[in-house]
């Protein structure tokens, strides 16, 4: 009887959707650490309003997959208190638009306790939430507020653009002793890709990934726009060589990988579904200007939501939610 070599086992992959990758990460981390529990609205018997936690209640029971009242300040705050006392909660806030309801516990407790207490407390809490337009959910269920949390000191924020990134980053978030916001895009749940099966697989928080190499222009993208940018790059192949980077982690942000890329291409499009002004785009552009000013061959481009909310009616929604066509237009401005 022979055993598989370690490398072979850790290289094995399976095809999963983003939804399945997130569920697998939750399941694996709950199996390997009994301090991990999940709580949020309808995450248990219902299986999550977007089916992400489906099956976890049946496997782990109501103590570890807890249905909460509709009470974000209360259960996010309880997550902070539980994390401060040795639990490792994964709190689902059903839609990211609801994060404001729990704003106080995030801003003044979760983010500040470690620092205010002189580093004498750990805050191993993960907040999972879903963002983005595209399903006619209207303004209060379609926002992309991740900039707030990437901006606020004391929090980490990740935005996976592939199923593999979703699994690896969520596992790292759960294992982290820092508060990590895990931002899912609701139009990505059915997107599939190859995902490592090794339960030890994680991705470091703070590393971007070059998803496609190119020479002429760099597209730095997040979430759904990673896949759409890869499609654009494929369409333009032979005409324009497009490098596509999944930012993966908004804070900390992997400046080096982005800088290496722009040093090569001299051109950059930043594609992120948050509102354009004062946001993720601005931060990435600033870092490029600070670090690679003399590598720039063209004005940097921003693709995002044009500072509106997300409207209901589809011609309106389609107008403001950025997609591959917007990325393609931005590329055409600079090459």
């Amino acid at each position: 009887m022979s055993t598989q070599p370690e490398t072979a086992s850790s290289d094995r992959t399976e095809t999963l959707t983003v939804r399945e990758a997130i569920r697998a990460a939750l399941r694996e981390e709950m199996e390997q650490d009994e301090d991990v529990f999940v709580m949020g609205e309808d995450v248990g018997k219902f299986g999550g309003v977007l089916d992400v936690t489906d099956g976890l209640f049946e496997q782990f029971g109501g103590e570890r997959v807890r249905d909460t009242p509709i009470s974000e300040a209360g259960f996010v705050g309880a997550g902070v208190g539980a994390a401060a006392t040795g639990s490792r909660p994964v709190v689902e806030v059903m839609f990211s638009d609801f994060l404001g309801v729990s704003g106080e516990q995030i801003m003044n407790q979760m983010a500040k306790m470690r620092y205010m207490f002189g580093g004498k407390i750990e805050m191993p809490v993960t907040i999972r939430t879903t963002e983005g337009g595209g399903m006619g959910a209207a303004s209060q269920h379609s926002g992309t507020p991740h900039t707030w949390f990437a901006h606020f000191p004391g929090l980490k924020a990740v935005t996976p653009g592939t199923p593999a990134a979703a699994k690896g980053l969520l596992k790292s978030a759960i294992r982290s002793n820092d508060p990590v916001f895990f931002f899912e895009n609701k139009m990505m749940y059915e997107q599939s890709g190859e995902v490592p099966t090794d339960p030890g697989y994680t991705l470091p928080i703070g590393e971007a990934s070059v998803e496609r190499e190119g020479e002429d222009v760099t597209v730095v993208a997040t979430q759904r726009l990673v896949g759409e940018s890869l499609d654009v790059a494929e369409d333009l192949a032979g005409e324009t060589s497009v490098e596509v980077i999944d930012v993966r982690s908004l804070y900390p942000l992997d400046t080096d990988t982005l800088a290496d890329s722009i040093r090569k291409t001299g051109r950059m499009v930043v594609a992120d579904e948050s509102p354009i002004s004062y946001g993720v785009h601005a931060e990435i552009v600033t870092r490029m200007v600070e670090n690679e000013f003399f590598s720039l061959d063209a004005p940097l481009q921003r693709v995002g939501v044009p500072d509106t909310h997300i409207p209901f009616s589809s011609p309106l929604e389609d107008e403001v939610v950025p997609d591959g066509d917007d990325v393609r237009d931005a590329i055409s401005q600079v090459v």
């Binding site: 529990f37 300040a73 209360g74 705050g77 208190g81 539980a82 994390a83 401060a84 639990s87």
Partner: peptide
Amino acid sequence: IVGAGPPLATGAALTSQF
């Protein structure tokens, strides 16, 4: 922050129960 302690205590009590 006035009123911020009770959610934290609820969370600590949750750890104890859990």
